[in-house]
Design a protein around this nucleic acid. Structure first.
Lengths: 202, 202
DNA sequence: GTCTATAAGGTGATAGAC
DNA sequence: GTCTATCACCTTATAGAC
């Protein structure tokens, strides 16, 4: 494997663009500042990406695909429904933790420009389909409490994602310090898993 | 009480500004479009609000205060912890439902411009303080499962708020139609309440 | 209070030299 | 591939007439 001490201009641009777009959103970001952050010229930006929109799309689809709940690889395990949930939560929160700032960015741009959906390849989470069936079956058998599978899915996603975007609001209304809140965040995997399991057990 | 058929220019401006800022964010909104939406002249905008920032602040603090979880009026009831939770969820989701689009707006601007915190009067939710104590006591007495009050609070807020901002993402990954999702949304009060209670009951 | 006109500077994008 | 120079337009804000 080659050691590339110096990154290509394209790599530098993508990195700088991601940082700027995530921080300021599409309309707040400036091509000039992206160029500065990448330590290259603004003209070069348009050499690699013909427009701001094109540059944004490249950055957004990457970021979106990394943050959308897609866990096909967790399907069909022989684990119990509880173990499956634990795996999902563990996996998803790990992913979110890698770039907490981009969660709000993705959600925001997804609602702002509905057309981004078309640009971005929409990846269906087949895990969710398998999950719906699994939960339904367990309910019918009486192994867990009577819940609507889709509502349960929404609950799981909510519990995983929201703390990464609602931090400021929660801190404001509860007077928690940033440090306290981050400590709570770091214990979320366990908290979410046991909370859900408790809600399902008969 | 007087009937004011015609709204004052200032009212028209505030309404139009709120609509534009919520839709496009601070940096995406345009003073010209706000003026158009309010059916007044751009010059008049600057007569009432000396800058875009000033107009934004007026709109933001209003919107923020209506969406932040502040439920002091629900304190000190003689209800059980379960009834208190039910009241909170009912009250909060009702508030969020009134302007679902502005939830993401507030969260977004709160993180984008940290200084808005200073501009906006930060309203502590005294309900949360009372809630923390209450939960702690019930845990010690053994009336409910052993939970961290603050994590529980985060869970409650997450379950209430997230569905209003993560709709697009959930729809994408689950292939739910907008109609199906909205139907699920309309049943959220009951879903969230029973989910939490189930998670707490021994 | 409400409007028009315009200043002053920013912003995305292109042309063309090296 | 990379840079400089520059165009054409947009955006906030102000000055001043009515």
């Amino acid at each position: 494997m080659m050691m590339n001490a110096k990154k290509s201009s394209q790599e530098l641009i993508i990195e700088a663009a991601k940082s700027e777009f995530v921080k300021k959103g599409f309309s707040g970001a400036r091509m000039q500042e992206i160029a500065d952050a990448a330590s290259i010229n603004k003209g070069l930006l348009h050499y690699y990406f013909k427009s701001k929109e094109a540059l944004f799309s490249a950055v957004f689809s990457k970021t979106y695909n990394r943050l959308t709940p897609c866990h096909d690889h967790l399907i069909n395990s022989n684990y119990s429904i509880f173990k499956k949930l634990e795996n999902f939560v563990d996996c998803y929160i790990s992913e979110l933790s890698k770039s907490p700032e981009s969660v709000l960015f993705v959600l925001n741009e997804l609602n702002r420009h509905p057309n981004h959906q078309t640009d971005t390849a929409i990846v269906t989470d087949h895990w969710s389909v398998s999950f719906f069936k699994d939960v339904q079956h367990k309910v019918e058998v009486g192994a867990i409490k009577n819940v609507c599978p889709k509502q349960l899915y929404i609950n799981v996603i909510s519990l995983c994602v929201f703390p990464f975007i609602g931090g400021k609001m929660i801190q404001n209304s509860t007077n928690l310090t940033k440090e306290e809140f981050n400590k709570l965040l770091s214990r979320r995997k366990k908290e979410v898993t046991t909370f859900i399991i408790h809600a399902l057990q008969r």
